[in-house]
């Protein structure tokens, strides 16, 4: 049960972070934009908890807070980054979707990280390095040429990469089913890449399937693809009101909140304790970030030629 508590804590940290961030944005206290992952936290935590964080590389996309927090458990440097503060992971140079920490890289061009992830995986193979590359992507990215080229490259060069598709069924306001021919499994099959799937947005199902896929990639030094059906409870970005989703759809998924599922297995007392603890951590992180100093403009001069 201790384990479940820890999992719930990691999940709740992400949820609480994203909710707090929404509040700050709605009050106009943060510039720029952000993409929350409320409803999808289980994928980040199930995956990151089951990789080798020292050896593996992780590439992510615009919706990266969950991945980052699952890796670092550090809401302060992320909040500070998003607020453009000097103590942020990149001293505020990148904000919400441009993050790099050691082997973790994100970027704001949908699908653009996927060939890079393949190159990282190829480099691991060429250098005989242990570990694999975990590449997160969304269903929208599945229609970018980048991804189609990369699936082929990964397959022909037998590189140790695990593509992890977080299929929340929407790319911004576009319902992916309306703009996507065939289905993902058939596409993946045609590249001779093993396909794994989870349908219920449940931590333990995702964890189990992820472990299988991960083991395959690692032991075979070959790519695998895993699709997780999920749902984003929040808007695409800060001010999105989800007018393109039906109330029925939203309600159906709300009933299956993956965090509530885990919470049911924890005593009410313990759950509340975790929630209070996490809320305090997040609140303090945002407050500390908020009152911290902005970066000095000279920091951008490193790596900038004339």
């Amino acid at each position: 049960m201790k384990n479940k508590n820890n999992i719930y804590k990691s999940l709740y940290l992400i949820r609480s972070f994203e909710q707090t961030l929404e509040t700050y944005f709605s009050k106009g206290q943060i510039r720029g934009t952000t993409h929350g992952c409320i409803g999808q936290e289980v994928i980040a935590v199930a995956a990151i908890n089951n990789i080798n964080i020292e050896q593996d590389w992780i590439t992510s996309n615009h919706r990266c807070h969950g991945h980052f927090l699952a890796i670092t458990n550090d809401p302060l440097v992320l909040a500070a980054e998003i607020m453009g503060k000097n103590i942020g992971v990149l001293n505020g140079r990148g904000a919400s979707q441009h993050i790099r920490l050691k082997h973790f890289l994100t970027n704001g061009i949908t699908g653009g990280m996927i060939p890079i992830a393949c190159g990282l995986a190829l480099s691991k193979k060429l250098k005989n390095e242990p570990g694999i590359v975990l590449a997160f992507l969304g269903d929208g990215a599945m229609n970018e040429g980048y991804v189609m080229e990369s699936l082929n490259l990964a397959s022909i060069y037998h590189v140790p990469i695990l593509f992890l598709l977080e299929n929340n069924m929407y790319a911004m306001s576009t319902r992916s089913a309306n703009v996507t021919a065939g289905n993902y499994q058939k596409r993946i099959d045609s590249y001779d890449i093993p396909y794994f799937e989870t349908k219920d947005n449940d931590y333990f199902t995702i964890k189990k399937t992820f472990q299988e896929a991960y083991k395959f990639v690692k032991s075979q030094t070959k790519p695998a693809f895993m699709e997780c059906k999920t749902f984003r409870f929040c808007g695409h970005s800060k001010s999105d009101k989800k007018e393109y989703m039906s109330q029925q759809e939203i309600q159906k998924w709300n009933l299956e909140d993956p965090l509530l599922k885990i919470r049911k297995d924890i005593s009410e007392e313990e759950a509340i304790k975790i929630e209070e603890e996490v809320k305090t951590i997040v609140k303090e992180a945002f407050q500390t970030a908020s009152s911290s100093s902005p970066p000095d403009p000279t920091i951008i001069l490193k790596h900038v030629a004339n």
Binding site: W57, L105, G112, I114, P115, I116, A117, C118, G119, L120, A121, L122, S123, K124, L126, K127, E129, G145, Y146, E149, S150, N152, L153, I156, Y157
Partner: peptide
């Protein structure tokens, strides 16, 4: 020598990924 399919976006990105891990593409 890595001979590639016709995927300029893809293999340019692949080269960048290799470079991120210390290779010199």
């Amino acid at each position: 020598i890595i001979q590639t399919p016709m995927s300029e976006q893809g293999f340019t990105g692949m080269g960048i990924g290799m470079a991120l891990n210390g290779l010199k593409p």
